[in-house]
Amino acid sequence: MTPPDPGPQTVLCGEVRTSVLRTSEALTARTATQLLNLRPDEHVLLSERPNLRVVSPHQLTGVDCRLPALTGGRPRAVGTVAVRAVLTEGRVLQTSAFARLVPGVGSHRKPWGHYLLRPGDIEPLARHQARDVVEGFLASAPLPGGVLNPGSIAERLLDEVLRHQLLDQRAPFKSGRTRLRWTALPAAEGAQASIERFTVAADGLRTVALRTPSADPSAVAALCEDLALHDWLLTTLLALVERSRLGSGDGEAVLAALRPLVDHLLHLWMPGARVPDALAGVWETLERRPGFSRQWQSLVQRIRDQVALRTVPLSRPVMARS
């Protein structure tokens, strides 16, 4: 049984969009830095170990809207949502919008400068039940108008970056976008970060409910970006393998379909590479069940086997017979 809601709690929430970067060649660190230079006076963060990850500076969007709620009233809340773009290995683009709902003081909107000094914080103007906000946020697939919608902020930035003139608009393979919506409630005192659920809904929306020790929103968002990246990789690889008709007889066609996967995707699998220890428990749980890496390894093995089989010269079976 869940304990009664203790009242106002800090809630982190956000949404991640993941897409292939529409460019024939993966971007180098230098070009990636240019692409994600969203604020000319701020640093683009660049990390090359254990893989190339480039993170744009944050942008803020002001909101004055209702909080989602499953059962109770929808309290009005005011603040800013942070959004950033992340590029992994110059190939996979993610935009990630997130905010921290902090128990507010007072029932009136304060001067805007107050909210700007707390970037990424949203203050409800009325009492709210954290659990109810979380359930409302994760349950309603298209959020109703007038209700906090970080996904639309992430979507807008994704479109903006994908239209950038640095990109030749030629993606090496067909793939879809994925949406991952997440929340994080505080973990019990002394407890590690944990994942309460990871759901894939019919319309493709992924929802993740986390419990995290008091961590900074940016770190929890980064964990969710990592989850979304690997979920996208698996989804994309599964779709492409299915489309390649792996078991069919047309060797040339299968090889042509698998080739871009080997070139652009297989080396991207690195779950939890930058996740801090305090949040690492989430990946451990997911690796136990459903076992993201297990599924990935088995797919990769299948692809490698097919490529190896189909590139072996036909003379081999002949020699085996003799």
Partner: peptide
Amino acid sequence: LVESPAEGSDGT
């Protein structure tokens, strides 16, 4: 610049 949002601004 981060514009002060009018009431009803949900990010869309």
